[in-house]
Design a protein around this nucleic acid. Sequence first.
DNA 1: ACCATAATTCGATAATTATCGAACTATAAG
DNA 2: CTTATAGTTCGATAATTATCGAATTATGGT
Lengths: 105, 105
Amino acid sequence: MDQEQAAASLAELGNTHRLAVFRFLVKAGHEGALVGDIQRALGIPASTLSHHLARMARVGLIRQEKRSRTIVCIPEYAHLEELIGFLREECCVGIDKAEPAHPAP
Amino acid sequence: MDQEQAAASLAELGNTHRLAVFRFLVKAGHEGALVGDIQRALGIPASTLSHHLARMARVGLIRQEKRSRTIVCIPEYAHLEELIGFLREECCVGIDKAEPAHPAP
DNA sequence: ACCATAATTCGATAATTATCGAACTATAAG
DNA sequence: CTTATAGTTCGATAATTATCGAATTATGGT
């Protein structure tokens, strides 16, 4: 994951509604949740939620699968892992230079 | 770190300029770097950079220490660690429910 | 065919964020 | 005291993002 992608994903998670949605989906597990479920659980107006879901899907944070009339939203764990990996590299580059707060085993 | 704080920090990192600044500071290490150094290294106009630095400091991603005429910017590693911790909790809640891609030791 | 449900798209508006030159403040050096 | 340097603040504008009702599309059930 490059800097552009990382920034894009971070920006999407950097919104309370979208972060709440993502948390909800992660709790829902690999089966995901329907748009309507999210809507009822979080009380976000349908069109607003749709907007946020589209953005999250655009950067690869979630995946949307159509099941007849409904749409299942599934969190992309691998994507989050990559994002965390990117941040961790950032973090650890400098952390050993001095004051080793996290002594490597 | 609660959801509000996490979202705020993620939003700040979710901007290419600020993410570049943060990476630069992490590489600089615990001694940090001067505003002017960042400015010259990344080629961001002074007033724009000042704006971004203020935002990053506001959410605790960096710390700014005045040294006579100059200002040292230091990355708050602990803050990033907390943020990563928050994301990791998110991620791992659902990851074991099925398809254990990351088998716990 | 008709109605209900699920969700998106449209469209208009509000709110936030980004950008950057110019003016300003603070400090150091001569 | 004057000048130079480091950085911020101001102010104005552009660009992006957020919000949400209304209209629309798609599908299933009766």
